[in-house]
Simulated assay, not measured.
Amino acid sequence: MHQPRGRDRRPARRAGSVPAGRPAAPVAVSGARVVTVGYFSAKEKNPVALMDAADTELTARGARIVGRIVQRRGVSAGGVGKMALPYSSRTLLSRGKVRELAEACEATDADLVVFVAALTEHQQRVLTGVLGRPAVCLSAVLTAV
C-alpha cells in the first residue's frame, strides 16, 4: 500500500530568496535592444500612454526600443471575472502571447525584455529561460543606476 510521505530532506526554499552562489545580476540597459511588454486589465483606459512612458524612461537610460507587446485582460466576456489574476502564474502572459513575444525577440535580435508589470522571481526565471534573454520588470531597471 501507499506509505505516508515523509519530510523532504532538501532545505526549504524561501519566497524571495536568491539561490546561494547566484547573486542577482544588475541589469545593463544602456545600448541594449529592448522589447517592452505591457500587461493591462480592461479597466486601464490608456495603456498606450503607460507603454509610451516606459519606452521614454528606457530610452533616456540609453536603451533602444525594438518591439512592443501588449496583453489585455478582461476585454472578452470570459476574462472580465478574472481581471485581477495573471493568465499564468509561471509567465504572467498567456501561452500564445509568450510565443508571440519569443518570435518578436528573435526577429528583432533583442538583448533584453522589460515588463511594465511587476514580475516575481519565478516568473523572471521562467521567462528568461523561455525567451533566451533576460526578462525583468521596469521597476528593477529604474532602480538600477
Rank of each mutant, 00 (worst) to 15 (best):
S94Y: 09
A60Y: 03
G78L: 10
L138I: 09
C105W: 01
L50Y: 06
T120H: 11
G74R: 06
A24R: 14
L93E: 03
A32W: 06
S30H: 10
M51V: 05
P4Y: 14
A60M: 10
H2R: 13
R68F: 01
G74D: 08
D111N: 14
M51D: 10
A12E: 10
R72M: 10
D8L: 05
S17I: 02
A117R: 15
R99G: 00
S41W: 01
S94R: 11
K82R: 11
T91D: 02
I69P: 01
G96W: 06
V141K: 06
R33S: 06
P23G: 00
F40Y: 08
M83W: 00
A32E: 12
A49F: 01
K45W: 04
G67W: 08
S30E: 13
A60C: 05
L131D: 02
G129N: 07
G96R: 07
L138Q: 05
V114G: 05
P19S: 08
A32H: 11
D55S: 09
S89R: 15
A54H: 01
R90C: 02
T143F: 10
A28G: 10
V37D: 02
R7A: 14
R9D: 07
P11R: 15
L93G: 11
G6R: 15
G31K: 04
G81R: 15
L138E: 08
G129T: 02
T143G: 03
T120M: 03
Q124K: 08
Q71P: 03
P23Y: 00
A25G: 03
G96V: 04
L101Q: 05
G38S: 12
A49Y: 02
G38D: 05
G6M: 15
L85N: 09
I69D: 01
G21Q: 11
A54Y: 03
P23R: 10
E106Y: 04
P26G: 06
V70A: 00
M1Y: 09
L131N: 04
A135H: 06
V126M: 10
R61L: 09
E106C: 03
K82A: 13
H2K: 13
E44K: 04
S41H: 02
